[in-house]
Amino acid sequence: MKGKKAIVLLAVSFILTTFFSLSAFASSDTPVTVYGDFDNDGNFDSDDYALFRQFMLNMIDKEIVPATCDVDGNGLYNSDDYAYMRQHLLGMIKIFPVQSTLVPSPTVTPYVTPIITPTLTPVPTPTSTPVPTVQPEGLYISYSKEPLNMLKVTLNIKNIANFSGYQANLVYDPQVLRPVYSDGSEYDSQSPVEIGSLLTKRYIPTDFAKHDLQNGVLNFGRTYLAVDSYKNSGVAESSGSIAVIYFKILKYETTKIRLENCDTMPGALKGTIITDWDGNMILDYNVGETSTIPAYVLTSTPTPTIAIPSPTLEPDGDDRYYYYYW
Protein backbone atom coordinates (compact mmCIF):
# COMPACT_ATOMS: atom_id res chain seq x y z
CA MET A 1 0.00 0.00 0.00
CA LYS A 2 2.77 2.38 0.87
CA GLY A 3 4.47 1.51 -2.40
CA LYS A 4 1.37 2.48 -4.40
CA LYS A 5 1.08 5.81 -2.58
CA ALA A 6 4.71 6.59 -3.35
CA ILE A 7 4.17 5.83 -7.05
CA VAL A 8 1.08 8.09 -7.14
CA LEU A 9 2.94 10.94 -5.43
CA LEU A 10 5.85 10.64 -7.87
CA ALA A 11 3.48 10.71 -10.85
CA VAL A 12 1.67 13.80 -9.54
CA SER A 13 4.99 15.51 -8.84
CA PHE A 14 6.23 14.76 -12.40
CA ILE A 15 3.02 16.13 -13.99
CA LEU A 16 3.11 19.34 -11.94
CA THR A 17 6.80 19.88 -12.66
CA THR A 18 6.26 19.39 -16.41
CA PHE A 19 3.22 21.74 -16.41
CA PHE A 20 5.04 24.59 -14.67
CA SER A 21 8.15 24.13 -16.81
CA LEU A 22 6.11 24.37 -20.00
CA SER A 23 4.19 27.39 -18.65
CA ALA A 24 7.40 29.19 -17.80
CA PHE A 25 8.81 28.42 -21.25
CA ALA A 26 5.66 29.63 -22.99
CA SER A 27 5.43 32.84 -20.94
CA SER A 28 8.98 33.81 -21.88
CA ASP A 29 8.05 33.81 -25.57
CA THR A 30 6.05 37.05 -25.45
CA PRO A 31 5.41 38.90 -28.73
CA VAL A 32 7.60 41.91 -29.49
CA THR A 33 5.90 45.18 -30.42
CA VAL A 34 7.25 46.58 -33.69
CA TYR A 35 6.36 50.26 -33.89
CA GLY A 36 5.44 51.58 -37.32
CA ASP A 37 4.56 48.07 -38.56
CA PHE A 38 1.38 48.96 -40.49
CA ASP A 39 1.06 45.68 -42.43
CA ASN A 40 1.82 43.53 -39.36
CA ASP A 41 4.59 41.55 -41.03
CA GLY A 42 6.91 41.92 -38.04
CA ASN A 43 9.11 44.61 -39.61
CA PHE A 44 9.03 48.35 -40.18
CA ASP A 45 9.97 49.21 -43.76
CA SER A 46 9.03 51.35 -46.76
CA ASP A 47 5.80 49.35 -47.24
CA ASP A 48 4.55 50.53 -43.85
CA TYR A 49 5.62 54.10 -44.66
CA ALA A 50 3.71 53.98 -47.97
CA LEU A 51 0.57 52.63 -46.27
CA PHE A 52 0.67 55.35 -43.62
CA ARG A 53 1.06 57.94 -46.38
CA GLN A 54 -2.14 56.58 -47.97
CA PHE A 55 -3.86 57.06 -44.61
CA MET A 56 -2.58 60.66 -44.48
CA LEU A 57 -4.12 61.20 -47.92
CA ASN A 58 -7.47 59.79 -46.69
CA MET A 59 -7.09 56.72 -48.89
CA ILE A 60 -7.23 54.38 -45.86
CA ASP A 61 -9.75 54.56 -43.00
CA LYS A 62 -8.47 55.40 -39.52
CA GLU A 63 -10.02 52.20 -38.12
CA ILE A 64 -7.53 50.13 -40.14
CA VAL A 65 -4.44 51.89 -38.74
CA PRO A 66 -2.80 49.73 -36.03
CA ALA A 67 -1.91 51.27 -32.69
CA THR A 68 1.80 50.68 -33.40
CA CYS A 69 1.69 53.52 -35.95
CA ASP A 70 1.40 56.07 -33.12
CA VAL A 71 5.19 56.24 -33.04
CA ASP A 72 5.40 59.40 -30.92
CA GLY A 73 3.02 58.06 -28.28
CA ASN A 74 0.63 61.03 -28.20
CA GLY A 75 -2.50 59.00 -28.97
CA LEU A 76 -2.92 60.46 -32.47
CA TYR A 77 -2.09 59.41 -36.02
CA ASN A 78 -0.83 62.50 -37.83
CA SER A 79 1.98 64.07 -39.84
CA ASP A 80 4.32 63.92 -36.82
CA ASP A 81 4.19 60.11 -36.95
CA TYR A 82 4.70 60.29 -40.72
CA ALA A 83 7.79 62.48 -40.29
CA TYR A 84 9.28 60.20 -37.62
CA MET A 85 8.73 57.15 -39.86
CA ARG A 86 10.60 58.90 -42.67
CA GLN A 87 13.49 59.82 -40.36
CA HIS A 88 13.68 56.20 -39.16
CA LEU A 89 13.79 54.89 -42.74
CA LEU A 90 16.58 57.31 -43.62
CA GLY A 91 18.60 56.37 -40.53
CA MET A 92 18.22 59.81 -38.92
CA ILE A 93 16.81 58.17 -35.77
CA LYS A 94 17.33 54.64 -34.48
CA ILE A 95 14.20 54.37 -32.32
CA PHE A 96 10.84 56.12 -32.32
CA PRO A 97 9.97 58.66 -29.59
CA VAL A 98 7.43 56.26 -28.05
CA GLN A 99 10.19 53.68 -27.60
CA SER A 100 12.39 56.12 -25.70
CA THR A 101 9.67 56.37 -23.05
CA LEU A 102 9.35 52.58 -22.84
CA VAL A 103 13.02 51.60 -22.70
CA PRO A 104 14.01 50.81 -19.08
CA SER A 105 16.95 52.61 -17.55
CA PRO A 106 19.35 49.62 -17.67
CA THR A 107 19.42 49.86 -21.48
CA VAL A 108 21.17 53.22 -21.20
CA THR A 109 24.03 51.69 -19.24
CA PRO A 110 25.69 49.71 -22.07
CA TYR A 111 26.29 52.95 -23.95
CA VAL A 112 28.58 54.28 -21.21
CA THR A 113 31.48 52.07 -22.30
CA PRO A 114 31.29 52.45 -26.12
CA ILE A 115 30.95 56.24 -25.97
CA ILE A 116 34.28 56.59 -24.19
CA THR A 117 36.16 54.62 -26.86
CA PRO A 118 35.33 56.78 -29.93
CA THR A 119 36.18 60.00 -28.12
CA LEU A 120 39.71 58.76 -27.54
CA THR A 121 40.53 57.54 -31.06
CA PRO A 122 38.58 59.15 -33.96
CA VAL A 123 39.31 62.76 -32.93
CA PRO A 124 42.45 63.08 -35.12
CA THR A 125 40.68 61.56 -38.16
CA PRO A 126 38.32 64.46 -39.06
CA THR A 127 41.12 67.01 -38.92
CA SER A 128 43.32 65.10 -41.37
CA THR A 129 41.14 63.97 -44.29
CA PRO A 130 37.52 65.04 -44.92
CA VAL A 131 37.72 68.83 -44.87
CA PRO A 132 39.80 69.45 -48.00
CA THR A 133 38.51 66.53 -50.10
CA VAL A 134 34.70 66.43 -49.74
CA GLN A 135 33.63 70.02 -49.17
CA PRO A 136 30.47 70.65 -51.24
CA GLU A 137 29.40 74.13 -52.25
CA GLY A 138 26.14 73.47 -50.51
CA LEU A 139 22.63 74.86 -50.55
CA TYR A 140 21.44 78.20 -51.87
CA ILE A 141 18.23 80.01 -52.68
CA SER A 142 17.26 82.04 -55.75
CA TYR A 143 14.25 84.26 -56.27
CA SER A 144 12.59 86.21 -59.07
CA LYS A 145 9.59 88.46 -59.60
CA GLU A 146 6.88 86.65 -61.56
CA PRO A 147 3.68 87.76 -63.33
CA LEU A 148 0.39 88.03 -61.40
CA ASN A 149 2.16 89.79 -58.52
CA MET A 150 4.04 86.70 -57.36
CA LEU A 151 7.54 85.99 -56.08
CA LYS A 152 9.19 82.69 -57.08
CA VAL A 153 11.60 81.21 -54.53
CA THR A 154 13.73 78.21 -55.51
CA LEU A 155 15.77 76.04 -53.19
CA ASN A 156 18.90 74.65 -54.88
CA ILE A 157 21.86 72.43 -54.10
CA LYS A 158 25.30 72.29 -55.68
CA ASN A 159 27.84 69.47 -55.45
CA ILE A 160 26.00 67.40 -52.82
CA ALA A 161 27.35 63.89 -53.40
CA ASN A 162 24.79 61.05 -53.80
CA PHE A 163 21.90 63.33 -52.85
CA SER A 164 18.69 61.38 -52.09
CA GLY A 165 16.41 63.67 -50.05
CA TYR A 166 15.98 66.78 -47.95
CA GLN A 167 13.85 68.54 -45.36
CA ALA A 168 13.70 72.30 -44.83
CA ASN A 169 12.11 74.70 -42.35
CA LEU A 170 11.58 78.04 -44.09
CA VAL A 171 10.35 81.15 -42.24
CA TYR A 172 8.80 84.20 -43.92
CA ASP A 173 6.71 87.26 -42.96
CA PRO A 174 3.01 86.37 -43.44
CA GLN A 175 2.14 90.08 -43.49
CA VAL A 176 4.22 90.52 -46.66
CA LEU A 177 4.07 87.14 -48.41
CA ARG A 178 1.50 84.35 -48.70
CA PRO A 179 2.50 80.94 -50.17
CA VAL A 180 0.50 79.83 -53.21
CA TYR A 181 0.90 77.43 -56.11
CA SER A 182 1.91 78.66 -59.54
CA ASP A 183 -1.76 78.65 -60.56
CA GLY A 184 -2.62 80.91 -57.60
CA SER A 185 -4.35 78.25 -55.46
CA GLU A 186 -3.83 78.49 -51.70
CA TYR A 187 -1.66 76.31 -49.46
CA ASP A 188 -3.07 74.39 -46.52
CA SER A 189 -1.13 73.04 -43.53
CA GLN A 190 0.01 69.91 -45.40
CA SER A 191 0.46 71.17 -48.96
CA PRO A 192 3.64 69.83 -50.59
CA VAL A 193 5.78 72.44 -52.31
CA GLU A 194 6.30 72.29 -56.06
CA ILE A 195 9.18 70.12 -57.22
CA GLY A 196 12.46 71.19 -58.77
CA SER A 197 14.73 69.47 -61.30
CA LEU A 198 15.94 66.81 -58.82
CA LEU A 199 14.15 63.94 -57.06
CA THR A 200 11.92 63.30 -60.09
CA LYS A 201 13.10 59.83 -61.16
CA ARG A 202 11.39 56.46 -60.70
CA TYR A 203 12.77 55.75 -57.21
CA ILE A 204 9.47 56.48 -55.42
CA PRO A 205 9.92 60.21 -54.70
CA THR A 206 7.73 61.09 -51.73
CA ASP A 207 6.69 64.51 -50.41
CA PHE A 208 5.79 65.51 -46.87
CA ALA A 209 4.85 68.83 -45.32
CA LYS A 210 3.58 70.39 -42.11
CA HIS A 211 3.17 74.17 -42.21
CA ASP A 212 2.23 76.87 -39.72
CA LEU A 213 0.79 79.38 -42.17
CA GLN A 214 -0.47 81.76 -39.50
CA ASN A 215 3.05 82.30 -38.18
CA GLY A 216 4.82 82.12 -41.53
CA VAL A 217 6.55 78.73 -41.32
CA LEU A 218 6.82 76.18 -44.14
CA ASN A 219 8.24 72.78 -43.16
CA PHE A 220 8.57 70.48 -46.14
CA GLY A 221 10.72 67.86 -47.81
CA ARG A 222 11.01 65.24 -50.51
CA THR A 223 12.98 61.99 -50.66
CA TYR A 224 13.51 58.83 -52.64
CA LEU A 225 12.17 55.76 -50.83
CA ALA A 226 13.72 53.18 -53.17
CA VAL A 227 17.24 54.25 -52.23
CA ASP A 228 18.74 50.81 -52.89
CA SER A 229 17.57 50.89 -56.51
CA TYR A 230 18.76 54.49 -56.78
CA LYS A 231 22.22 53.56 -55.46
CA ASN A 232 22.46 50.46 -57.66
CA SER A 233 21.84 52.62 -60.73
CA GLY A 234 25.19 54.29 -60.09
CA VAL A 235 23.82 57.62 -61.36
CA ALA A 236 23.73 60.09 -58.47
CA GLU A 237 22.06 63.49 -58.36
CA SER A 238 24.20 66.28 -56.92
CA SER A 239 23.29 69.70 -58.33
CA GLY A 240 20.02 71.37 -59.29
CA SER A 241 16.79 72.72 -57.85
CA ILE A 242 15.00 70.73 -55.15
CA ALA A 243 11.93 72.86 -54.35
CA VAL A 244 9.94 75.77 -55.77
CA ILE A 245 7.65 78.00 -53.69
CA TYR A 246 5.54 80.81 -55.10
CA PHE A 247 4.45 83.66 -52.84
CA LYS A 248 1.64 86.13 -53.40
CA ILE A 249 3.03 89.59 -52.64
CA LEU A 250 0.84 91.34 -50.05
CA LYS A 251 3.03 94.38 -49.32
CA TYR A 252 5.83 96.10 -51.23
CA GLU A 253 8.49 96.32 -48.52
CA THR A 254 11.86 94.77 -47.78
CA THR A 255 11.40 91.35 -46.24
CA LYS A 256 13.41 88.29 -45.26
CA ILE A 257 13.18 84.61 -46.02
CA ARG A 258 15.31 82.46 -43.75
CA LEU A 259 15.95 78.84 -42.82
CA GLU A 260 15.73 78.05 -39.10
CA ASN A 261 16.15 74.96 -36.93
CA CYS A 262 13.05 73.58 -35.22
CA ASP A 263 12.14 70.90 -32.67
CA THR A 264 10.82 68.44 -35.28
CA MET A 265 14.17 68.34 -37.14
CA PRO A 266 16.77 66.93 -34.73
CA GLY A 267 20.30 67.27 -36.05
CA ALA A 268 19.33 69.86 -38.68
CA LEU A 269 21.95 72.22 -40.12
CA LYS A 270 20.51 75.76 -40.12
CA GLY A 271 17.00 74.57 -40.82
CA THR A 272 17.93 71.90 -43.36
CA ILE A 273 18.50 68.15 -43.45
CA ILE A 274 20.11 66.49 -46.49
CA THR A 275 20.58 62.73 -46.87
CA ASP A 276 22.58 60.56 -49.27
CA TRP A 277 21.67 57.28 -50.95
CA ASP A 278 23.05 55.31 -47.98
CA GLY A 279 20.44 56.95 -45.74
CA ASN A 280 23.08 59.02 -43.93
CA MET A 281 22.70 62.67 -43.03
CA ILE A 282 25.20 64.88 -44.85
CA LEU A 283 26.78 67.34 -42.43
CA ASP A 284 29.57 69.08 -44.36
CA TYR A 285 27.71 71.49 -46.64
CA ASN A 286 27.40 75.26 -46.47
CA VAL A 287 24.12 76.98 -45.64
CA GLY A 288 23.37 80.67 -45.20
CA GLU A 289 20.84 81.73 -42.60
CA THR A 290 18.94 84.68 -44.11
CA SER A 291 17.97 85.95 -47.56
CA THR A 292 16.93 89.60 -47.61
CA ILE A 293 14.63 90.54 -50.50
CA PRO A 294 14.69 94.29 -51.22
CA ALA A 295 11.41 96.13 -51.70
CA TYR A 296 12.24 97.01 -55.32
CA VAL A 297 12.25 93.30 -56.20
CA LEU A 298 8.67 92.97 -54.99
CA THR A 299 7.36 95.93 -56.97
CA SER A 300 5.42 95.26 -60.11
CA THR A 301 7.98 97.15 -62.26
CA PRO A 302 11.51 96.37 -61.04
CA THR A 303 14.23 98.87 -61.95
CA PRO A 304 15.76 97.65 -65.25
CA THR A 305 19.29 98.48 -64.15
CA ILE A 306 19.34 95.74 -61.53
CA ALA A 307 17.96 93.03 -63.79
CA ILE A 308 20.37 90.11 -64.19
CA PRO A 309 19.95 88.17 -67.46
CA SER A 310 20.76 84.50 -66.94
CA PRO A 311 19.75 82.49 -70.02
CA THR A 312 21.99 79.55 -69.17
CA LEU A 313 20.44 79.09 -65.73
CA GLU A 314 16.79 79.74 -66.52
CA PRO A 315 15.89 79.27 -70.21
CA ASP A 316 12.14 79.66 -69.67
CA GLY A 317 11.83 83.35 -70.57
CA ASP A 318 11.96 85.79 -67.67
CA ASP A 319 15.45 87.24 -67.31
CA ARG A 320 14.87 89.17 -64.10
CA TYR A 321 16.52 86.90 -61.53
CA TYR A 322 18.15 87.77 -58.24
CA TYR A 323 20.37 85.06 -56.78
CA TYR A 324 21.39 84.68 -53.18
CA TYR A 325 24.03 81.96 -52.67
CA TRP A 326 24.13 80.02 -49.41
Rank of each mutant, 00 (worst) to 15 (best):
84 Y>S: 07
57 L>S: 08
109 T>I: 07
187 Y>F: 15
127 T>D: 13
157 I>N: 03
56 M>V: 02
58 N>G: 04
126 P>M: 06
62 K>C: 00
137 E>I: 05
82 Y>T: 06
81 D>G: 01
124 P>Y: 10
89 L>T: 01
176 V>L: 02
111 Y>C: 11
146 E>T: 11
184 G>T: 07
62 K>H: 02
99 Q>F: 05
128 S>D: 14
59 M>I: 01
95 I>P: 01
51 L>C: 07
92 M>F: 10
126 P>N: 14
172 Y>D: 07
91 G>K: 14
125 T>A: 13
144 S>Y: 00
128 S>N: 12
179 P>N: 08
169 N>W: 06
154 T>F: 03
122 P>D: 14
101 T>E: 15
106 P>F: 14
56 M>F: 00
103 V>N: 12
102 L>R: 07
55 F>Q: 00
165 G>C: 00
93 I>C: 09
172 Y>L: 13
175 Q>A: 09
68 T>L: 08
63 E>V: 00
111 Y>Q: 14
159 N>Y: 01
87 Q>T: 06
64 I>T: 09
117 T>A: 13
179 P>D: 10
157 I>V: 15
168 A>S: 13
136 P>Q: 08
147 P>R: 04
76 L>T: 11
126 P>A: 11
164 S>V: 00
164 S>H: 00
161 A>H: 04
166 Y>K: 06
105 S>T: 09
47 D>Y: 11
90 L>N: 04
180 V>D: 02
189 S>H: 02
143 Y>E: 05
188 D>Y: 03
134 V>F: 14
169 N>C: 15
165 G>K: 01
167 Q>V: 06
97 P>A: 01
80 D>G: 00
135 Q>W: 12
184 G>M: 02
174 P>V: 11
64 I>R: 02
97 P>I: 00
186 E>R: 02
85 M>F: 13
130 P>G: 11
98 V>F: 04
78 N>I: 07
145 K>C: 01
51 L>K: 11
109 T>V: 08
68 T>A: 12
97 P>H: 07
143 Y>K: 03
57 L>R: 08
150 M>C: 08
135 Q>A: 14
177 L>G: 04
121 T>G: 08
119 T>V: 14
99 Q>V: 08
79 S>N: 06
85 M>Q: 10
120 L>V: 12
126 P>H: 05
182 S>V: 04
180 V>R: 02
127 T>V: 15
78 N>Q: 05
95 I>R: 12
120 L>T: 14
149 N>D: 14
118 P>L: 12
150 M>D: 05
135 Q>S: 13
51 L>S: 03
115 I>V: 15
128 S>A: 15
50 A>D: 15
147 P>M: 06
125 T>L: 10
86 R>A: 07
81 D>H: 04
63 E>L: 09
178 R>W: 10
146 E>Q: 15
148 L>T: 11
